[in-house]
Design a protein around this nucleic acid. Structure first.
Lengths: 97, 97
DNA sequence: CTTATCTACAACCATATGGTTGTACGTGCC
DNA sequence: GGCACGTACAACCATATGGTTGTAGATAAG
């Protein structure tokens, strides 16, 4: 999942699909790369769960799944909580002396 | 930076170094891989700014930089804010009608 | 001084990643 | 039916990534 977020293009696709569904070709127009390359990026995002596709006619509309973004954020918050806990533990040790 | 977070071993190193400085060899003891491999993971974390090294004698103690973790979290929060903003905008449009 | 420990770094290898082009298939339009 | 469009997928290529081993330097210990 962090792997999916590790690429700037994919984060940009996430931003765009957070604002509303966009077709794969609609996305592809923006970037200086082939349609197939964009398709692959969307596939990576889809595999990670950050994005879903919905078929409408011959088009596939991509939309972000904000709950999954929240999962990543929560993961980082847990790390930060670890840090705060470490500080708290240090406080406890120091206050004992 | 998300790239650095994309590997489980590196996230584990982050967790451990959040709790307090650990030497590179101290980290390496835990993992079923060579010292050099762990060294590389630490280097990736260091390049991303998520971790810093401090020389003490012949050892290098690795410590996490929580501010950098916060930066990644804030980035995800910005994405979520985008989502909430999109909902708000939709509300605005609907309430006009 | 000698030896063991911790680190750094280079060379090498297998596989993953990010891109390309080409082909095929379903769908909308004339 | 015929054609353009949107998508899917495979094959291919260059480079990045994640691992290994080996060598060498700096420092601690005996």
């Amino acid at each position: 999942m962090f792997r999916a977020l590790a690429h700037g293009i994919r984060r940009d696709i996430l931003r765009r699909t957070l604002l509303g569904p966009v077709s794969v070709s609609g996305l592809a127009l923006t970037y200086a790369m082939s349609f197939a390359a964009v398709q692959k990026h969307v596939a990576v995002l889809e595999d990670s769960g950050l994005v879903q596709k919905q078929a409408v006619g011959r088009e596939r509309f991509v939309r972000a799944v904000p709950e999954e973004i929240a999962r990543a954020r929560v993961c980082l918050e847990a790390l930060e909580a670890l840090w705060r806990h470490r500080l708290t533990a240090l406080d406890a040790v120091l206050s004992q002396e």
